[in-house]
Every structure is written in C-alpha cells, then in structure tokens.
Amino acid sequence: MDAATALALLEWQREMGADEAILDAPLDRFAEPIRPPAQAEGPPPEPPRPELPGLEGLAARAAAMAGKAATLDDLARIQAGFEGLEIRRGARNFVFADGNPAARVMIVGEAPGEEEDRQARPFVGRAGQLLDQMFAAIGLSRTAVDAENALYITNILPWRPPGNRRPEQDEIDAMLPFVARHVELAGPDLVVLMGNTPCQAALGRQGILRLRGQWTTAFDRPALPMTHPAYLLRTPIAKREAWADLLSLKARLQAGVQP
C-alpha cells in the first residue's frame, strides 16, 4: 500500500467517525494500574496542624475547669493539669500558694522567679524576703497560725515565664479564672494586688505608681494595689510610699472590713 492510498483510507475512517485506534488484541483498561497524579517539584506539603483554641476558648476552658474545684486542694490539682500555656513546659515546678489559707489578707503577685520555681513556693527570693519584712512590720506573717496575723500568698501565673519576662496578656487571661476561684475558695477579707500584673488581671488597668495606695474592689473584695518588692529593691526611696500603704492596710484591718 502506497502512501497516497494509506492517507485516503485514514481520511475515509475520519469521515466515518472513527476517532480511536483499534489494536490487534483487546485491551482490558480496568486491569491497568492506577497511577498517582504527577506532583510538582519541591518539598512535600506540610501535614495540617491541629487548630489551637482561641483566647476566648482557652479562658472558657479554664473557667470550666476552675469551677469544678470544691477545695483549694482540688484547685491546685486541676490547675496543675491545665495544658493551655506553653510556659509550663519550661518551668521546673508548679507554684500554687504559700501561707495560711485562712488568713484575712491574701497577696496576689505576678509570677514565680528563679528561686520560686526551684522551691515551688511564691515570694521566696530577695523580693520575697523583703515582702516578709514589710508585712512583719504590721504584725502579719505567712507562718502565723491564727488568721488575724496570717498571710496567704499566690501569683497570677503558677509557672515561671522564660527569662523572668513579664506575663503576656493571653497568659493572664487564661489564668484569671483560676485566680478568681482561688480567692473565692480562700475567702480573705482583703486582697493586696502586688504590682502591675495583678492590677491588669483584676482591674484591667496598669500604672502601679498611680494605682498604689488607692483602695478599690477586686474579686468582689476590698483590694489595695501596692508596688512590688522587686521594685522597692531597685528604688529604695519608694519604700516610704510602701510603708504608708502598709499602715493603710493595718488600719483597714483594725477598723473592720467594709465593702
């Protein structure tokens, strides 16, 4: 068959509607292996990451967990098991509280430092030693057995932030339900907000040098903002104002707590 004849036959087949070549032997296309689609060159795609709960979801989960605590021991166990904050992975210990839970005065600080992280107790470093001296001057101590002369101490964060940095807002928001439940279960007459972070958590405000010495309400109780002992170590001249705040606290206790 010459080329002209072959072309004429192909043209005839096209006109008759033939659009597929027919092999000499039948082909079972269902038996062909399924080939994966070709992938573009480059690194393989990353697996999808699990979605982390938003800040509101994290705080809501913390509130639900804190609400289940009927005692301070319950709260410590539940809070220690809260997985919402990354800082817990770099801390040595969970730091819950120290002192007498029956105390009339509850101090709320910021977060554990290096020594607090090591001993699993709040306010035990240099700032903690100064705090003990300050409150001893008005007859209060974390080691006192009777509630009238006792102190109960906790922090907004129970884990030490990396490098002793200040707590971030999402960390404060996540721990606030636990702190509120902590105050509710301890039932102090007065709360001392020791520094900017507790004021931000309880009052939604900062600027401790403006807030200090002014009685307010936090956690449904009378509250007194005070400068943190760490600030007093750096700025000794500010101890005069801190002493005035201590005298105000003593007078409030002696007069009887009023809403």
Score class of each variant (00 low, 15 high):
202 A>H: 12
9 L>Q: 12
33 P>D: 06
77 R>N: 09
37 P>A: 15
166 R>M: 12
27 L>G: 10
191 V>E: 00
258 Q>Y: 07
42 G>T: 01
188 P>L: 00
206 Q>G: 15
183 V>G: 07
152 Y>P: 00
5 T>S: 12
94 F>T: 01
62 A>D: 06
204 G>S: 05
23 L>W: 09
170 D>N: 14
215 W>S: 07
158 P>M: 01
50 P>F: 11
224 L>T: 06
155 N>K: 08
118 R>E: 11
174 A>S: 12
15 E>Y: 11
182 H>L: 11
196 N>P: 04
99 G>R: 00
26 P>D: 04
45 P>Q: 06
166 R>H: 11
103 A>W: 00
103 A>Q: 02
102 A>M: 06
48 P>A: 05
218 A>H: 03
54 G>N: 10
174 A>F: 04
217 T>A: 12
87 I>Y: 10
84 G>L: 01
239 K>L: 13
110 E>Y: 07
112 P>Y: 07
5 T>R: 13
258 Q>V: 13
162 P>N: 03
2 D>F: 09
10 L>K: 12
52 L>I: 05
242 A>Q: 09
253 L>Q: 03
189 D>K: 13
79 Q>E: 12
127 A>H: 05
160 R>Y: 02
231 Y>W: 11
183 V>Q: 06
131 L>K: 01
209 L>A: 14
119 Q>C: 09
36 P>N: 08
207 G>V: 11
112 P>I: 10
177 P>K: 03
188 P>W: 00
112 P>A: 06
138 I>A: 04
248 S>C: 05
149 N>L: 01
122 P>T: 04
243 W>H: 13
12 W>V: 09
96 F>A: 09
74 D>M: 02
255 A>D: 12
247 L>V: 06
57 G>T: 02
171 E>W: 04
172 I>Y: 06
203 L>R: 12
239 K>P: 08
160 R>A: 02
116 E>H: 05
239 K>D: 04
43 P>C: 12
229 P>H: 13
243 W>R: 12
87 I>W: 13
39 Q>K: 15
19 D>G: 11
